[in-house]
């Protein structure tokens, strides 16, 4: 923490302080002082193939609102036969699953870390979430490529029009826009019996303590979080971090952005100093738990082992 400049007072003076993305702000705050501001945002949502929904007899205006919905819709789309699959995800990427699987857990009242930052990998909600994915895998609703995909194959698979549902973020939209042969839409990631959640990602911007141009840097940060800059970012497909401006600069750009804005408002991020080692490491406990539970079927064992490792990592030993 000695690396960044404390900008608490400057931020408090901002008129739009309350409009800044909550989860970004939480991550930028340490012991009550603020060290960074949100810059770009990313929220996870479910993408779904409207064309395939219609073909499978599903109403595209009624996207999945519960886990049962997701499974049910996936089954119906898989029933179209051939190489049409109901659901896809990148099963070998830790970061991707932090982004897209955690919201299922959050929306159902669970979490991966408790309020003190201690891992809760063996909690019952996670068991249920893993079981949900495992059932879909066992029922062959997910293509085999998911097992080894580190994030680069499931997107194109969805973009090829063969998959019903795929969780991802706003950054995926440019890729989708070049796939013209089907209609798609987005919906928030649902909880087990309703509700929704999202993973708030993106970037923060801060001033290094050693900087010799602090005043200029602050001016830039102010500008970067201002309406003009955030509008430019929005036009490029990047979710703005000014939640107070969603209705004015973001949603009008594209009707689909409404869901993304909604997701961003509910966006959460785990708060932990060992986040990378836990959730971003492709050899770490988070992804190993998902892989062992979903693809190998030993859900309890996977959770236990993951919790052990996560505890060891958090304890710093």
């Amino acid at each position: 923490m000695g690396a960044l400049e404390d900008i608490t007072d400057k931020v408090n003076a901002l008129k739009y302080k309350s409009g800044l993305s909550r989860s970004h702000m939480r991550l930028a705050t340490y012991k009550g002082r603020i060290y960074a501001l949100p810059f770009t945002a990313e929220a996870s949502v479910l993408f779904y193939n409207v064309t395939l929904f219609r073909r499978a007899g599903l109403d595209p205006k009624r996207p999945p609102r519960t886990w049962e919905d997701v499974e049910d819709y996936a089954r119906k789309i898989r029933a179209l036969g051939g190489d049409y699959y109901g659901y896809v995800f990148a099963g070998a990427s830790a970061g991707y699953n932090a982004f897209t699987f955690m919201p299922y857990i959050w929306a159902s009242g669970g979490d991966v870390l408790n309020s003190k930052g201690v891992p809760t990998f063996d909690s019952p909600v996670i068991t249920q979430a893993l079981t949900f994915y495992r059932r879909m895998w066992e029922a062959d609703l997910i293509p085999k490529l998911a097992q080894t995909d580190q994030g680069t194959n499931s997107g194109p698979a969805f973009a090829s029009g063969k998959i019903g549902i795929y969780p991802s973020g706003a950054f995926f939209i440019p890729t989708l826009s070049s796939a013209k042969n089907f209609e798609w839409d987005v919906t928030p990631i649902p909880g087990k019996t309703g509700g929704y959640a999202s993973f708030a990602g993106g970037d923060e911007i801060a001033i290094p303590k050693a900087s010799k141009h602090k005043a200029e840097a602050w001016e830039f940060i102010q500008w970067a979080t201002g309406e003009e800059a955030q509008t430019v970012l929005a036009r490029k497909g990047i979710v703005p971090i000014r939640t107070d401006l969603y209705k004015s600069i973001y949603e009008p750009l594209n009707p689909k952005y409404k869901a993304l804005a909604q997701a961003m408002l509910e966006g959460r991020t785990p708060y932990s100093t060992v986040y990378n080692a836990l959730f971003n490491d492709n050899n770490g406990p988070w992804i190993k738990m998902i892989q062992d539970a979903v693809f190998r079927g030993d859900i309890q064992g996977a959770q236990r082992a993951a919790q052990q490792r996560a505890m060891a990592i958090t304890a710093g030993s």
Binding site: Y96, Q150, T152
Partner: peptide, 8 residues
Amino acid sequence: QSGQFGTI
């Protein structure tokens, strides 16, 4: 080769 979240 790791092409985060994108296509390789």
